[in-house]
Simulated scan of single mutants.
Amino acid sequence: MKVINIKRIVTASILMMVLMALPVHADEMTTVNLELPEYFNFDDNYYTVYGGPDVTATLIGDNEFSRGDEVTLNVNLMNKGVVTGFESDDEADDNSDLEQKIQQTEMGYEAQRTTAIGIVAMLVSEDPNVRVKSGPQEAGTLASGEQTESPVAFNIEVSKNAPAGEYPLSLQLYYGYQENVQIDGDNETDLGITNMEVGLWYAVGQQMQDLTVVVEEEADFEVVNVTGELEAGSEGLLRVVYKNTGEEAVKDATVRISADDPFSTTDDQSFLGSIAPGETAEAVFRLKVDETAVSKVYAINSEIKYEDTDGHSQISDTVKIQTETLPAGSSGSGMGQYIGILVVVVILAVAFVGVRKFMANKEGNNGKEE
């Protein structure tokens, strides 16, 4: 009867220790050197085999995003590992039939060296503008030529202040793989090797691959100046200067405000036109302030609708306008009206006095003539 006793020398604790302690520095597989236990000897090891797993990653879908996006990156893994060579550690001519059979059996096991076992993937970003929110992800076991049935998913967040450009991400891969094989047996029969023992020694491989995400060029806006005198109980003009602080020019830009209490308006839009990066444009709004408005600084929300360089219609993030309301009459408009009325009265009075003098002189002259 054929009996096979397989000894597997790999532990989860060793793998976990490696995952937490060792960095990855190259896209080619590197091996964590672990000492063999004393009872695992290779006195009868017939082959030294070279090669191993080669796990490559491909980003699925678009890698271009906008500022402030929170997205999921889907990564496909494929094992392209091959046995690159082997050498015999024993002379075949000197081997018995049993040793030759063991040698053939060992070669069959050595072919499993290219399988990546229990793959763990970690995505790392060194730039604070792109933050990886997902921890390590398990990707299962891949034999040579196999790929993941479903992609490995990582959630990332792009900062609202991220400059446009490329951002590298490091995908770090860890897995176990078969490092070496030891086979022994009592005898070779027609049924095979009796009491065959197979010792499998596993090591930990590690790889790194760079992935790239792109933050797209786009327009961005901020308010750089606000002027206007808005009094409680009256209507006035609010002038707002917007600056394009982004990397992309816009055209046909129109700004719209949301006038909440204490403001009201029937004129909530203003045309800005084309604005290149770094340029400004002024918007003018006519606002009425409620007579019960408290004198303080208010924030008015505004949004800019524009056409980008690709001809697509876009709407900006909310841009706040900070403006202050004044108490009724504090702008001097009431005093101006009073002064205007006073001036008219003075003019009329002077004119009346002049007419009276003119009439008096005329009557006096008429009397002398008589």
Rank of each mutant, 00 (worst) to 15 (best):
residue 329 G to H: 13
residue 274 S to H: 06
residue 130 V to A: 06
residue 319 V to S: 09
residue 358 F to M: 14
residue 112 Q to W: 07
residue 85 G to F: 08
residue 321 I to G: 02
residue 55 V to Q: 11
residue 312 H to R: 04
residue 349 A to C: 03
residue 92 A to L: 14
residue 195 N to Y: 04
residue 47 Y to I: 05
residue 133 K to D: 02
residue 17 M to E: 03
residue 98 L to N: 06
residue 287 L to F: 03
residue 171 L to D: 05
residue 229 E to Q: 01
residue 251 K to T: 12
residue 222 E to I: 09
residue 304 I to H: 07
residue 162 A to H: 01
residue 346 V to D: 03
residue 69 D to F: 05
residue 16 M to Q: 14
residue 281 A to H: 01
residue 108 G to T: 12
residue 14 I to D: 14
residue 47 Y to Q: 06
residue 110 E to G: 09
residue 205 G to M: 01
residue 13 S to H: 14
residue 137 Q to A: 08
residue 93 D to K: 15
residue 294 V to R: 06
residue 332 G to L: 10
residue 265 T to P: 10
residue 306 Y to N: 14
residue 82 V to T: 13
residue 309 T to Q: 15
residue 342 L to C: 01
residue 324 E to C: 03
residue 240 V to N: 02
residue 167 Y to Q: 05
residue 81 G to M: 02
residue 312 H to F: 03
residue 323 T to S: 04
residue 90 D to P: 00
residue 223 V to Y: 01
residue 198 V to C: 05
residue 219 A to F: 11
residue 83 V to M: 11
residue 173 L to C: 02
residue 360 A to Y: 04
residue 340 G to N: 03
residue 6 I to L: 13
residue 199 G to Q: 02
residue 300 I to P: 02
residue 117 I to S: 06
residue 209 Q to I: 06
residue 257 I to D: 03
residue 29 M to Y: 12
residue 71 V to L: 00
residue 238 L to T: 11
residue 139 A to V: 01
residue 348 L to M: 10
residue 30 T to P: 09
residue 281 A to G: 00
residue 77 L to F: 10
residue 12 A to H: 14
residue 182 Q to H: 00
residue 26 A to P: 11
residue 111 A to G: 04
residue 46 Y to H: 10
residue 117 I to Q: 09
residue 323 T to I: 08
residue 43 D to M: 10
residue 268 D to M: 00
residue 273 G to M: 04
residue 54 D to F: 12
residue 230 L to V: 06
residue 174 Y to S: 03
residue 166 E to Q: 11
residue 349 A to V: 07
residue 45 N to Q: 09
residue 52 G to W: 05
residue 217 E to D: 05
residue 205 G to F: 03
residue 207 Q to G: 05
residue 277 P to R: 00
residue 284 V to W: 08
residue 368 K to M: 10
residue 45 N to G: 04
residue 166 E to F: 05
residue 14 I to K: 13
residue 251 K to W: 00
residue 279 E to S: 12
residue 263 F to P: 08
residue 92 A to N: 12
residue 145 G to T: 07
residue 75 V to P: 06
residue 171 L to Q: 04
residue 297 V to H: 07
residue 111 A to H: 05
residue 23 P to Y: 12
residue 260 D to N: 08
residue 164 A to S: 14
residue 259 A to E: 02
residue 140 G to E: 12
residue 195 N to W: 04
residue 38 E to H: 14
residue 55 V to E: 10
residue 132 V to S: 05
residue 93 D to C: 15
residue 227 T to N: 08
residue 113 R to E: 01
residue 349 A to R: 02
residue 236 G to T: 02
residue 322 Q to Y: 10
residue 145 G to D: 08
residue 117 I to E: 07
residue 216 E to V: 13
residue 13 S to A: 15
residue 164 A to R: 06
residue 200 L to P: 02
residue 113 R to F: 00
residue 97 D to R: 07
residue 227 T to C: 01
residue 137 Q to N: 04
residue 27 D to P: 13
residue 56 T to V: 05
residue 328 A to V: 09
residue 160 K to D: 11
residue 242 Y to Q: 08
residue 169 L to K: 06
residue 208 M to L: 14
residue 212 T to S: 07
residue 166 E to K: 10
residue 66 S to T: 10
residue 228 G to Q: 00
residue 254 T to A: 07
residue 287 L to V: 09
residue 79 N to S: 09
